[in-house]
Amino acid sequence: MGSVDEERPFLEAGLADQAESSVLYTGDGSVDFHGNPVLKQNTGNWKACPFILGNECCERLAYYGIATNLVSYLTKKLHQGNVSAARNVTTWQGTCYLTPLIGAVLADAYWGRYWTIAAFSTIYFIGMCTLTLSASIPALKPAECVGNICPAATPAEYAVFFFGLYLIALGAGGIKPCVSSFGADQFDDTDPKERVKKGTMLDGVLDLAFQLCLWVLLSEVFFSGTPLYRFQRPGGSPITRMCQVAVAAFRKRHLKSPDAMRSLCSALPLLTTALGSYLSSFILTVVTYLTTKGGQVGWIPDNLNKGHLDYFFWLLASLSLLNLLVYTVCASKYKQKKTS
């Protein structure tokens, strides 16, 4: 058995190799595209982020370009009434906020963020092409109005248009929940310098994304950065944790402690925006049905000057007040945990 003096060089060499390894490789478990440990100097950091932010910029520009003009397109090109157009828009927006739950589960539990963004960006691109074709090819859109006569869209024309529109909603579901997280994955939490950069990236991701130039959606922007990316392996389904929260809230429903309400409220925000959009569509349907009984014009006719849009706005204001009261009650049940 060798002496301590004889073994010291080997120990020092081992410690030196370990220290060098911690400097060269990331310490947060990230890997490269092939699943191997990644070198810090060759991957991640800000050099990988422009590709990710470029993809997000293109997606946001495409989404808001559609959303801001969708009502006008439905009423002027597909010749829908105001109520039908508004209902279709809110339903589509609700779907756009609901599908990120699908993308988040796939990214965290099965595919990882890179492949989720890649797959859903492809779906998004197909949806954009379909939507473009439906608006460009005369056979896929209704004829123009002649005087006061506007031919209605055929079922086939509707099918093509809404197929493309909801492909975009599905594609957005894989991009929205993953882009910021994938950008954060490019910074090593175990490295103090990269940890500071990570916070900067998360704070400025949206502002920076909208300042980037107008790149074509799903061009080589995102995929060309593949060799530079750092990947985190999927870590299990969040559905299990969500179910555990729901079960815990149900079991504690009789307790006076605010824990039960806190647990329930923590599970609701994921669905709040999507359900709010679907609820808006439902309200439009109900209001139209009730106010057009007996052949009446209704509150929201195609000619808004003949209706009572002011009554509808008062209804929305009342619902907003009710929403504020519910929020206040939930907030009063919440007690912030003290941190040392």
Rank of each mutant, 00 (worst) to 15 (best):
H254P: 03
L255M: 10
S257A: 14
P258R: 09
P258W: 04
D259M: 09
A260Y: 10
A260V: 03
M261A: 14
S263Q: 13
C265V: 12
C265H: 06
S266N: 10
S266M: 04
S266K: 08
A267L: 11
A267D: 00
L268D: 05
L270V: 11
L271S: 15
T272F: 06
T272G: 09
T273C: 06
T273F: 13
A274R: 04
G276Q: 12
S277A: 10
Y278A: 02
Y278I: 06
S280Q: 00
S281W: 04
F282G: 01
L284F: 15
L284R: 11
L284Y: 14
T285L: 12
T285Q: 13
V286W: 02
V286G: 00
V286I: 14
V287H: 02
V287Q: 08
T288N: 15
Y289K: 15
Y289D: 11
L290G: 07
T291P: 05
K293W: 02
G294D: 05
G294W: 08
G294A: 11
G295T: 05
V297I: 15
G298P: 06
G298D: 10
G298V: 08
G298S: 04
I300A: 03
D302A: 04
D302R: 03
D302Q: 02
D302F: 00
N303D: 14
N303Y: 00
N303A: 00
N303M: 01
N303C: 01
L304R: 09
L304H: 03
L304W: 04
N305S: 13
G307E: 07
